[in-house]
Write a protein that binds this DNA or RNA. Structure first.
Lengths: 223, 223
DNA sequence: GTGCGGATTTTTGGATACGAAATGTTGTCC
DNA sequence: GGACAACATTTCGTATCCAAAAATCCGCAC
């Protein structure tokens, strides 16, 4: 992907790369909540020294993804059922604000959302779960982005990342996968009508179903 | 304050200390939005090497207080009027959730809030602005804490810190200082009645006044 | 065998020094 | 005045080293 990229190849720092690698490891469930992260081995694995790794971990700690205990080390944050519920409570509160701030969308914007949802459809056919997760995120954040509330959207992004280690579990049965697409289509319809409150309601139902899927899949983690 | 502290003297890392020092510099307006931070000079000033400084800055960057541009350096995040409004929008959304989750407070809890508000009163007499700011924060977060929604409260804390460089300006006239105390008293009264919605309304008015004070004091920053 | 206490090993926290890369600045030439 | 090249500054990243704190291991007493 870095390959021969011409101009967009923004010379990125090691730290940013390490952060992304760690996120990918979380999505791939190569790192799971509660697990301890060894600085040295992670550095060796990513081909960098310990310093950028430590900076990356500090960054993820500030974000809530990692936990740090002095002289013991970093572990992936483990959320219990109550904490996970709080993350979703915050998502509901902030996403509602963003949706209420949406202007009437142009047909180009509506077309883009439709296109993104159809891309999810293709991944559903292929049963490409990672693709569905990525596509779903793209769909939601493209919609949020139309609000113009960039700081709020960034904050929502942080909240999504915080539940990343937990979010990948659901979507295992074919029915939930198709349901996601259907609900997205309903949202697009409501947006076309300019029915903001309708979108808020749909989104809340959409999110709540994800939460209950998640609870079922996890059987509410003990700690 | 660290002094001879016996057991509670949790051996704290340099990084945590540097983060706190930077926050203090922000409160003291020794660092102002847009200003560039030189790693080496900051390290020398705080008597540490560059490593903990860089980790501290990364942490503050993830929090939104600092901005980083590769090979150029860190600068204090500068918020324009619109962005500041977004921070306050998020505060309203999340603080409302927290207040709605408040249980009926015990008389000990109500007493504690009263005590904290009276402490602010003492600082108002002394015209100790830094003390008022600290006391105000203590009052609000003690109240928020009673909700039990610790993750949401942490997030609100982050939002407060994000507007820290801007928040210290208001409270310059005697009347606003006394107004703060009066409004706090009204909130305590509403809490005693268990009137959650009343507290939400009072808090929104309280916050909005701060925002307009702030806008007036800053004359909405240009960038 | 089991539990306890101390020594060893591992890991983290931090300092220092160095090289490489990028940015910004200065000065010269046209 | 504007373009371009040399220079200084700063950041990014590595390597190496040491201290301190944890975790682990081991032997001893019971």
């Amino acid at each position: 992907m870095t390959g021969t990229a011409p101009e967009t190849a923004r010379r990125v720092t090691s730290v940013a790369r390490v952060v992304e690698e760690i996120r990918a490891m979380l999505r791939a469930r190569e790192l799971v909540p509660g697990q301890q992260v060894r600085q040295e081995s992670l550095a060796a694995r990513l081909g960098v020294s310990r310093i950028p790794v430590r900076e990356a971990l500090k960054s993820l700690e500030a974000e809530g993804v990692m936990r740090h205990e002095p002289h013991v080390g970093y572990t992936v944050t483990r959320l219990n059922a109550d904490e996970l519920a709080q993350v979703y409570l915050m998502r509901r509160a902030l996403e509602t604000e963003v949706l209420r701030a949406l202007p009437r969308l142009s047909s180009a914007q509506l077309g883009e959302l439709t296109r993104l949802n159809e891309a999810i459809g293709a991944d559903v056919e292929r049963v490409d779960v990672a693709g569905i997760v990525a596509g779903n995120q793209a769909f939601h954040f493209t919609m949020f982005g139309y609000s113009g509330l960039d700081l709020v959207v960034e904050e929502i992004d942080r909240l999504w990342r915080r539940s990343e280690p937990y979010r990948t579990v659901h979507l295992y049965d074919a029915e939930s996968r198709r349901r996601v697409m259907r609900e997205h289509r309903k949202m697009i319809t409501a947006l076309r009508r300019g029915d903001t409150e309708g979108v808020v309601t749909l989104m809340n139902a959409h999110r709540d179903l994800t939460v209950s899927d998640l609870h079922a899949a996890l059987g509410l983690p003990p700690s």
